[in-house]
Write a protein that binds this DNA or RNA. Structure first.
Lengths: 334, 334
DNA sequence: CAGGTAAGGTTAAGCGCTTAACTTCACCGA
DNA sequence: TCGGTGAAGTTAAGCGCTTAACCTTACCTG
């Protein structure tokens, strides 16, 4: 069996309290006793049970991460970055894919509470608002990652989507484009903001919004294909397309090529997220990069702050996205 | 504060033992008392602490999953499938990315033991053999996922990589190919098996192995690019390439196109894994699919079996891969 | 109507650890 | 010589839950 603190204590001829003290580096113990105990721990391969520790009111050093779908490259990167930062701080992560379903979100939240996680990171568009709000009453600190929802009184760490859209719009205009189509995910707050920012850029540069078509497509292969083909069939083909995710953009490039239309010669495209799709697509996809690593480190920082001090008021941190220039946008000025 | 079993008991005017009984559906309680207690639990939004439950010797309903890198699409899919199956069985998952580093593997294993997980799934090429073997002594059931290592006495659930390679080889030969180059990951057992299977197919079909070049490349963007270009510069270009991962294959397609060489007209390629890269690449990548969903469900099944009954001898389950035909291989017979 | 029985509880110990409060003892200065 | 002091431990309660063993009633039966 796994050795317990009693085994160590007995072996060392001391009380368990003494052993506990060397575990936590508290109280007074002579160097001699201490090293003896440490020695014995090694011999027995003793590992304190974090379950028992947690029961005494200490932390579980576990945080829950809610994502919609870990198989989506963006969220996979997010999970990776969060895990990395958490690990460095001594925390581990319980992974929860909600699959965009209210029920799963609900169940997972209950589960995380039951498991006494120290905090929860929500990277999925929240559906179960009631449950989420109840997190506060239950003193479970939470951080919204890359999403924002005024109805929830948590910390927020997100990309400035509005600005991201704006960057994309301004860039295309600088490159001489004037006719646009937007492909965006329906019912996603960040998608809405991206489009809004994009349009704002057009307005600021004096482009008429009337002619701008907005097509809705989820960030899934078949929907993205459909959207791409819809654009190809348009009577007046736009000179540039703004896709609200890289997956949509990458598929657009492929569909368009199949139709004998060339990117960026015949049509330009700009994506969002800077996932691996953007990097390996051909031509390389110009896109708006979310600063995932930074978002993750701020998120963990905020969460740990909130864990240490539950009463601090929720901050809303917005990090600037950056434009990554590759080869999918043609410069019409040249 | 979070209500405890005491709060419920007090409110219901019964002892905590009674409450515990309704929680576990054991012992005798009158319907009346039971429904009253259930009612009160609802009102208080009582959730039993799984930490306390775990301490009484019950399970934690948590399993650890070790992957090398969750940002890799293959492992992201794996994590997703495992999580899905685990959730259905009432388990949740602690995610551990080892980043191919012995140290992290080691630390995570210690952590998982400390957290008293009920079992561990290892989907990363194991490095810390000693620690892994010690899992057995500590009665922590484990399953090797998609890898195999005779030195470790765990259950194994894996794709039949040998057969996968064989399938790829036979397919290419059926399509009339005779000159091959293989791109494979170095130091990866499954990679070795894939290559071996591939070669076996060639031998069985009477193709001389002498002319078959094997290039090593990690499944990373830059290494894959390098490998692709190395092939392009070859004095005698092969008619078909076998890449041991989809990422390598997808990048190969792009690099080759940039060089003005067309897939599959000028050169054919076949991948392995059937990740999203295979699906969205252009042309669609013909590849060997690992039955991820099935692997995951068998893995969870084996692990739960081992948790219930630690003494069952370790099984080794090998699931057959299948060939997914898309458009990246040319039929030379036509 | 004594004694058995079963239903519906309760009591209390224990899981592995933390921690406030207490004990013990050596040593010190006046 | 004696009280005071500080170092090094120990004692014991408590965290929230489970469970074996026990208790109390009501009811049944010969």
């Amino acid at each position: 069996m796994k050795p317990t603190i009693y085994d160590v204590a007995k072996e060392a001829n001391v009380s368990i309290a003494t052993v506990s003290k060397v575990l936590n580096n508290t109280g007074r113990i002579s160097e001699k006793t201490k090293s003896k105990i440490l020695q014995i721990m090694k011999e027995l391969e003793y590992q304190p049970s974090s379950v028992a520790t947690a029961l005494t009111g200490k932390k579980t050093f576990t945080i829950g991460v809610l994502v919609p779908d870990i198989a989506n490259p963006f969220f996979a990167e997010v999970a990776r970055a969060l895990e990395n930062n958490a690990r460095e701080m001594g925390y581990s992560i319980i992974l929860c894919s909600t699959d965009y379903q209210l029920e799963r979100e609900h169940d997972y939240l209950e589960l995380l509470i039951k498991k006494q996680v120290d905090g929860i990171i929500i990277a999925t568009e929240p559906k179960d608002l009631k449950k989420l709000r109840s997190l506060n009453d239950r003193n479970v600190p939470s951080v919204l990652f890359s999403i924002d929802h005024l109805a929830i009184d948590s910390h927020v760490v997100t990309t400035d989507d509005l600005k991201g859209g704006y960057l994309a719009g301004r860039y295309l205009i600088e490159k001489g484009h004037r006719d646009f189509v937007i492909i965006t995910e329906p019912q996603r707050a960040s998608g809405v903001l991206r489009v809004e920012g994009f349009k704002k850029a057009l307005v600021d540069e004096g482009v008429d919004l009337e002619g701008v078509l907005v097509i809705e497509a989820k960030s899934k292969i078949n929907e993205a294909r459909k959207a791409a083909n819809q654009i190809l069939r348009l009577p007046k083909r736009p000179s540039a397309v703004f896709a609200s995710t890289d997956l949509i953009a990458a598929i657009f490039i492929n569909e368009v090529r199949k139709a004998g239309v060339s990117v960026p010669q015949d049509i330009s495209i700009i994506g969002f997220d800077n996932t691996i799709h953007a990097e390996i697509s051909d031509p390389g996809l110009t896109t708006i990069a979310q600063p995932i690593a930074k978002l993750a480190s701020y998120t963990i920082e905020q969460l740990l702050d909130a864990i240490e001090n539950p009463s601090i008021p929720p901050n809303r941190i917005m990090l600037a996205p950056t434009l990554i220039e590759r080869e999918s946008v043609r410069d019409l000025n040249k």
